[in-house]
């Protein structure tokens, strides 16, 4: 079942008097439960596509459909609501809120939106995620008291806390050493298998590409490979 559809998507940026074509007509379908890697060199358009899928950027032309909703027809409030309900983010630089501790950072997305209260059920789910990412002894620590790997684990738990259909990870291992990076990837793969959550990576880390079961390669804003592995 497809969860994301990109149809003839183009994205142009103005750079002074010139226009940069970051994405030049991309068609892409992502299925529910995919563990997909969008790979390519710098400037190939992978981050732009990830931003459009993550509803933080809109296409210049073409159509992007997320969970059945055409994002071109949504205003800022609608995009924010859909982003909150359907998508979790893991950033290259972790992007934790500096003044909140591990537990508070993880529960933060649950406080947004209409049902912003932390119920017992939600509390149990947070506890489960904290244990799952191995941070049971770091719940009170602030981001500046955690290692890079620990911060990324917090980011993973935060991305999953709203039980989103899609988790977007932008270069999730770029700021981690290789061992920690591998551990993080294995953790995400395990969650993908256990929960059926769709994981989409933007990366040029070959280890991420190796572990993915759906690989999309980009070059100069166009898809040059779209392959699936069994």
């Amino acid at each position: 079942m497809s969860i994301i559809n990109l149809s003839q998507v183009k994205k142009h940026y103005s750079l002074g008097k010139t226009t940069v074509e970051a994405v030049r007509g991309v068609d892409l379908t992502i299925e529910k439960g995919d563990f997909i890697s969008i790979a390519g060199p710098s400037g190939s358009g992978k981050s732009t596509i990830l931003n459009m899928i993550g509803l933080i950027d809109t296409p210049t032309e073409g159509e992007v459909t997320i969970a059945g909703e055409n994002i071109g027809k949504l205003d800022d409030t609608g995009l924010t609501r859909l982003r909150h309900e359907a998508i979790g983010f893991i950033f290259q630089s972790f992007n934790l809120i500096p003044v909140l501790n591990t537990r508070e950072n993880i529960e933060f997305p649950l406080l947004l939106g209409k049902n912003g209260k932390i119920t017992a059920e939600k509390r149990d789910w947070i506890d489960f995620l904290i244990e799952e990412v191995g941070l049971g002894d770091r719940v009170k620590n602030k981001p500046n008291e955690l290692s890079g790997g620990q911060r990324q684990r917090v980011a993973i738990a935060r991305a999953l806390v709203t039980k989103p259909m899609i988790v977007l990870a932008d270069e999730p291992t770029a700021n981690l050493d290789s061992n920690t990076g591998e551990a993080i990837l294995e953790l995400m793969k395990k969650i993908n298998k256990d929960s059926g959550t769709t994981f989409i990576f933007s990366t040029h880390d070959h280890k991420v590409v190796q572990i993915a079961d759906h690989v999309v390669r980009l070059l100069d804003g166009l898809i040059v490979e779209d392959s699936r592995r069994n």
């Binding site: 924010t80 609501r81 909150h84 309900e85 992007n95 500096p98 933060f108 997305p109 947004l112 709203t162």
Partner: peptide
């Protein structure tokens, strides 16, 4: 970055 992160995570304006 912090404000952008909050907005990305679903915080309304």
């Amino acid at each position: 970055s912090e404000i952008g992160t909050m907005r990305a995570l679903g915080a309304q304006k």
